[in-house]
Amino acid sequence: MSAIMDTEANANRQAVTMRDGVEVAGAAEAGAPSAAGGAAVRPRQKAGNRRSSVPPWLMQIVAPLLGLAFMVLVWQIIAMNNSQFPTPLLTLQEALKLFADPFYRTSPNDQGIGWNILASLQRVGVGFGLAALVGIPLGFMIGRFNFLSSMFGPIISLLKPVSPLAWLPIGLLVFKSANPAAIWSIFICSIWPMVINTAVGVQRVPQDYMNVARVLNLSEWKIITKILFPSVLPYMLTGVRLAIGTAWLVIVAAEMLTGGVGIGFWVWDEWNNLNVPHIIIAIVVIGVVGLLLEQLLVTLAKAFTYEQVVS
């Protein structure tokens, strides 16, 4: 019974930490059982009020918090039944230690988590940027000219389902070094969504607009800048979004294989050290960074998407 109470207290504490940040986290570290018990009671009262009148914003906060609490609860139960698995509390303490100094550098193989994340982001940035540089113009041309579409269509269909990691040995062979090989994998995995989405966007430009272009006899340059590009932009940004999601998935796996600095290698390193809390922290960090990248691009897409006129 008391164990379950304790779990709930933990869950609530975790939830509050997420919302209020450092201040409450500090209180959690102090961690007096009575204080924890109080924290457990308070949200319950709130839940009671909620039933009488349900403001939607409260629901929007409460529901995700409950989900988080449930996850932490499951985690706690697993941890209690498995001595090798760290409890949420232990992991939190480890995380606080880790994030207290994210940018230390003792040796090339022992750097702060901040450096590791930045190293991964840099690889993704370079590979992804190169892919955009090649993929978007290629997508435009494939969408614009049927001949190119027929020419490259089968190749793209063949290569698209290949796991980017299968390309890693080719990268190692050609570049003779781990870092460019990892970037190469990112390049290969992020180019397909951008090529395909851009091409589809170009092919789906409303015929009305193309008729306008034909009647006005616009030059190819004007067609691209005034009609195709604005019309394709939403599709293109969807491709970019898909690509960055995949790139972030792939970099972790690629770094596990190539080693060096980076969040993926860090996970592998911590596994070799049998430091399970760090692995869990890394999982959360990878998730958060991926989420932020996605959100960034969603915001970007919204800013650049013109209202489609439906009339």
Binding site: D208, Y209, N211, V212, K226, S231, V309
Partner: peptide
Amino acid sequence: FQNHSLLPWL
């Protein structure tokens, strides 16, 4: 054109 076909981004 019947549906005016103005470019919505201009």
